[in-house]
Computed example of a mutant assay.
Amino acid sequence: MNRRFITPLALLAVLSLVVTGLYLVPAAAQDDMTQLRPEALAPLTRPAALFKHDEHNEKAKLDDCIICHHSGANGVITPDESSEGTDCAECHSVAGGKNQTPLRRAYHRQCIDCHKEKGSGPTYCSGCHDKRRP
Rank of each mutant, 00 (worst) to 15 (best):
D63E: 14
P134A: 15
N57Y: 07
A27E: 07
R104C: 02
T45H: 15
F5E: 09
E81D: 14
A13Y: 01
D54Y: 03
K118P: 01
H92K: 04
R105M: 10
K98S: 11
R105L: 12
G119I: 03
S126H: 10
R4H: 07
K61A: 13
Y124R: 12
K118A: 09
A29K: 06
D32K: 03
A95W: 01
A10T: 13
T123R: 02
P38Y: 10
S16Y: 04
V76M: 12
L22C: 14
A95Y: 00
R133M: 09
K131I: 10
E55Y: 00
T45K: 15
R105E: 14
H70G: 14
T101N: 13
L103Q: 00
K118G: 00
G97K: 06
T78E: 15
L22R: 09
R3W: 13
C65A: 10
A49T: 05
P122A: 13
Q35H: 11
P134L: 14
A28S: 10
A60I: 01
L11F: 13
Q35R: 13
T7C: 10
P8N: 05
P43F: 05
H53S: 08
L24V: 12
S83P: 02
C125N: 08
T34Y: 01
A27K: 12
A29C: 06
N99M: 08
R105G: 01
R4E: 05
P47L: 02
S82M: 04
P38F: 09
T45I: 11
E58Y: 04
H92A: 03
Y124S: 10
A13T: 11
D32E: 11
A29R: 07
G127M: 12
H108A: 08
K98T: 09
G72M: 13
S120K: 15
N74K: 14
C65W: 04
L103S: 02
I67C: 06
C91H: 06
L17A: 12
K61S: 11
M1Y: 08
Q110D: 06
C88R: 13
E39D: 09
I112C: 04
F5Y: 06
K52F: 03
D130A: 09
G96D: 04
R4N: 10
G96I: 03
V14E: 01
A89V: 12
P134W: 07
P26N: 10
P26A: 07
A95P: 00
D87C: 02
Y23F: 09
R46Q: 14
A73M: 11
I77R: 15
V14K: 02
P8L: 07
C128Y: 03
Y23R: 12
L12P: 01
H56Q: 04
I67S: 15
G96S: 08
S71E: 08
V18W: 07
A29N: 09
S120V: 08
K59H: 07
G72R: 15
A89L: 12
Y23G: 05
R46S: 13
T123N: 04
S16V: 08
D54G: 06
G75R: 12
K131H: 08
C91F: 03
P47C: 05
E39P: 04
G97P: 03
L17W: 07
A29G: 05
L17R: 04
R133P: 01
P8I: 07
T86K: 14
A10E: 02
P79A: 08
L22N: 13
A49G: 03
D64V: 10
S93L: 05
C91V: 06
R3P: 15
R37V: 02
R132M: 05
C88P: 00
T45E: 15
R109W: 11
